[in-house]
């Protein structure tokens, strides 16, 4: 965020707040919804001096991250959207994809390649 731009002036609408959400699953993956358990979430809302309102919801107990997420959300509604996207969102998305790809590659290496043994009957 710091690399992208100096923090613009904003007014806090909801100071970063730690709470939970109930994560739901479905019976047998696709059936009736049920409550699986909660996860921690931090949220924040703010308004830029230029008027845009931003909301941030992030997993975990991370007040600074929630505030930055809200700020990015607000800035993405303004004239700087393209710059913020390139400087903040795109690199984060790339990092997340790289993390996923690394695990997928390790998983792929543990895939079983069955070979059927020929029975010696002839």
């Amino acid at each position: 965020m710091d690399a992208a731009a100096p923090t613009p002036a904003f007014e806090m609408l909801r100071t970063p707040e730690i709470g939970t959400i109930m994560v739901q699953g479905r019976a047998s993956g696709t059936g009736a919804a049920f409550n699986l358990g909660e996860m921690t979430v931090t949220r924040c809302s703010l308004r830029l001096a230029s008027g845009e309102v931003g909301h941030g919801y992030v997993q975990g107990r991370r007040k600074t991250c929630a505030q930055v997420a809200a700020l990015v959300d607000a800035l993405m509604q303004g004239p700087d959207a393209a710059r913020i996207d390139a400087a903040v969102i795109a690199p984060l998305a790339a990092e997340a994809e790289a993390r996923r790809d690394t695990r997928a590659a390790k998983a792929a290496a543990t895939r079983v390649e069955f070979t059927t043994l020929v029975r010696g009957e002839d």
Binding site: E17, T20, V23, Q24, R26, L36, T40
Partner: peptide, 23 residues
């Protein structure tokens, strides 16, 4: 600890069919 936290709501039911599987 959980009892001290407000609950913001519920998630959508997770779709395990789209899981990025380690196993």
């Amino acid at each position: 600890y959980r009892t001290t936290l407000p609950r913001f709501g519920s998630s959508l039911p997770v779709d395990t069919g789209t899981m990025a599987c380690d196993r």
